[in-house]
Computed example of a mutant assay.
Amino acid sequence: MPYRLFKIFFSFFIFFFSLGFSQTLSSNLDKTTLALGEVAVFKIQILDLDGKDVQIAPRNELLPFHFEMVNDSIAKQKDIYLRSVKFAIFEEGKFKIPEIQVKVGDKILKTIPYEVEVINTAKKGDQINDIMKNKEVELDVKDYWDLYKFYVLLALIIIAIIVLIIGIVKWGRKRKDSPVVTTNQTLKDLEKLRKKNYIENENFRAFYVELIEITRGFITKQYQIPADVLLTDDLIDYMKNTNAISQENEKIVEDIFLRGDLVKFAKTIPTKEIMSKDFTAIRDFVKRSTKDVEAENLRNNSVTEISAEDQSKLRKLK
């Protein structure tokens, strides 16, 4: 009999000893039936940790896909681990929370599985009433400005950019093709020619070749005369027939171009004085060219006005 009592006492001692030194895992689900979107709470508790490490799914990844996490809080101390997960489900049907594996130190613990049923509590034909009736609010100019000012400002910026681009294109083209720009560029080219010292070195052939080439390019741009492709005689006839260039300037161009042809073909040798005189004459011609262009524009405008008047008279006679 004493031996039997000793055996019972020893068994109880081993049982209580194991309870005192082993971990206790418990879980709880507060609701197993939920309405769509209703929040439920799933809890896990581990006791008697004795400072051991707890390995479990990370925050917001504890429950399956259909469970939308609302909050996932974790509290851990030396002897206790608490985890509370608030969730909601937005689909009808039955969903399972599987057994969750928890590793405490070297020991594996598992929770019990749960099944959650989600139902739609709204019935067909139910009338949904607003808590408060809608109010009509009158908007003034300031309210409309606050609503649409971004779009108005954006439209104004786009319009300003388009106008600016058009202006730059037109202004740039006008500046590039204007008589003053062509004149200034040709004067710069003539100055480069002068600095080559062809006159001082009596390199007359190179001097006349470049001087006439510069002048041809200038006449082509400034007067819209195809001087860059016409022979000298043809160019002289063309200038006289168009009247775009004044007689004074025509005479200068004619004399220098004819002399240049004679020099290029070694039929005459000019002196330094003649070369200097021709250079100065071309430079002065370039400077005076804007007056020729202005006179030509006036003639064109006058012809246009007269033509318009004549057409009006003809219409009246008819």
Rank of each mutant, 00 (worst) to 15 (best):
Q45R: 15
V293A: 01
L47Y: 14
S18L: 12
G260P: 02
K287D: 06
K251G: 09
Q77M: 11
E38R: 01
Y3L: 14
S18E: 10
V41H: 12
D126Y: 11
D53N: 15
T232K: 02
S312T: 13
G167D: 08
P64T: 10
Q101N: 11
P226Q: 02
G172Y: 06
D234A: 11
P179T: 03
L231I: 15
L164E: 04
A295I: 08
P179M: 02
Y208P: 04
I199S: 00
I159Q: 01
W145H: 08
K133D: 12
E294K: 08
D261A: 06
G105C: 03
I112E: 12
N301P: 01
V116N: 00
T186Q: 00
K7V: 15
K174T: 14
F90C: 07
T290I: 12
G51T: 05
G37L: 01
L49R: 06
R4C: 13
Q311G: 13
I74N: 10
E210S: 14
V116Q: 00
K267L: 09
E296M: 07
I74D: 10
V286Q: 00
K107S: 14
G260S: 11
E117I: 06
F12L: 11
V293N: 01
G125S: 02
D189L: 14
I74G: 04
K316P: 08
F204S: 10
F65V: 15
E200M: 05
K291G: 02
E305R: 05
N184P: 07
T268F: 12
V102Y: 01
A155G: 07
F150C: 10
D50A: 13
N120D: 04
E210L: 05
R259L: 10
N184R: 15
T290K: 08
P64N: 04
L82V: 15
G125D: 02
Q311I: 12
T32A: 03
S26D: 08
D233M: 03
L109F: 05
I97G: 00
E136Q: 12
A308T: 15
I269Y: 09
K52T: 08
E99F: 05
E191L: 03
Q222S: 03
K277S: 12
M239Y: 01
T304K: 14
I8K: 09
Q55L: 12
F42A: 02
A88H: 06
R173M: 09
I166M: 11
I119W: 02
L258P: 11
K94Q: 10
F90I: 09
Y144Q: 08
K135E: 07
F10K: 09
F42T: 04
R194F: 04
Q45W: 08
Y223W: 03
K110Q: 09
I100H: 04
K264A: 09
D278L: 07
S246W: 00
H66D: 14
